[in-house]
Design a protein around this nucleic acid. Structure first.
Lengths: 142, 142
DNA sequence: CTATCTGCAAACTTTTTGCACTTAA
DNA sequence: TTAAGTGCAAAAAGTTTGCAGATAG
C-alpha cells in the first residue's frame, strides 16, 4: 500500500481530508493513460468493489480540480467533462479522431508566442490548452 | 439585404436548403465578436422577433457544424457548447478568466511543432485547437 | 466530538428525439 | 409535389443540491 500513502500525503499537504474515495479516485486517474469521464471513474471503481455514488465522484473531482490536483477539460462535440491528474510538467494532448484516445505529449512550443500576445494585445497569459487532432500511430496502420 | 444573399449562396454551395433560420443563425454568428451558446442565439433571435425553437437552433447548428461552416467548442468548467463561424483563416482564442469573453487572434505558431509530432509519434495531424487563458486588456486595467 | 464527507433521491441544465405539420425548391 | 425543415412536448444525458446519516482527525 505504498501508493495509498502517497495520496494521503498529497491530500494532507493541501489540508484535505484523506478519504477512501479521494485516494481511490486519485489512484484511478494516476494510472489511466488518458483522461476519463466521471462516469468512467464510477464504473471503474464499482468494478473494484469500491462502493461510491455519482454525486461523490463529482464532488471529489470538484475538490481535486479546485485544489489543482486534477485538470478538467472538454472535447468538442462530447458534452461531458474529462479528468486527468495534473502532472506538474506542462504537457499537451494528441487526440485520435478515429479511436478517440487521448495521449499526452510533454514539452511546449509556446512560450515565445505567449510573450508576443502580451505585447500585441495587453493580454496577460496565465495558461493555455493545446489539443492536436489527427490519426494515432495505431489507427494510421489500419 | 446583400448579406442575406451571401448566406443563401454559402448554403447553396453545400447543397443545403436556405431557410430563414439558417440564414438568421449564420448572420447572428457572423456578427458576434465571440462564440455564443445555443441559448444565446435563441434569445438574440427572439429579440429580433424571429420565431424559433431551441430544437431548431440545435438542429441548425448541427448541420452547420457538420458542413464545416461553424465551429463548436467547449470551455472547461462550462457545461455547454459555444459556436462561432468558421472563418477560413486559421485562428486561436484568448479567453479572459475574469470577464469570460473570448477573443480571436489570427495566425498560428504551430506548423513546425506539428511536423515534429508526426516524426516523433507517427501521429498524422489533421488540426488543433489552442486556447490561451489570462486577463484581457480591459480586465488588466481594473 | 465536530466539521467534513457521503448516499440517495430529486432537481436542474443542456441537448436530443418522435411525430405531425410546414416549407423550399 | 416531396424531401427536408420546424415546433412542441417529452425524454435523455450530464451535473448539482438538500438533507440525514457516516466518518476522519
Amino acid at each position: 500500500m505504498e501508493a495509498e500513502k502517497i495520496y494521503r500525503e498529497i491530500l494532507r499537504k493541501r489540508n484535505l481530508r484523506s478519504t477512501r474515495h479521494r485516494t481511490a479516485i486519485l489512484a484511478e486517474l494516476e494510472k489511466s493513460r488518458f483522461p476519463v469521464s466521471a462516469e468512467d471513474l464510477f464504473i471503474n471503481l464499482k468494478e473494484k468493489n469500491i462502493s461510491i455514488s455519482m454525486s461523490t465522484v463529482y464532488r471529489v473531482l470538484d475538490t481535486l480540480v479546485e485544489n489543482g490536483l486534477v485538470i478538467q477539460s472538454n472535447l468538442p462535440g462530447a458534452n461531458k467533462a474529462v479528468y486527468e491528474v495534473n502532472k506538474k510538467e506542462h504537457h499537451h494532448h494528441l487526440i485520435c479522431i478515429k479511436c478517440r484516445n487521448m495521449f499526452s505529449v510533454e514539452g511546449c512550443p509556446l512560450s515565445e508566442y505567449e510573450k508576443s500576445l502580451e505585447n500585441r494585445f495587453g493580454f496577460s497569459v496565465k495558461g493555455h490548452t493545446l489539443k492536436i487532432f489527427g490519426y494515432c500511430n495505431e489507427c494510421n496502420k489500419v
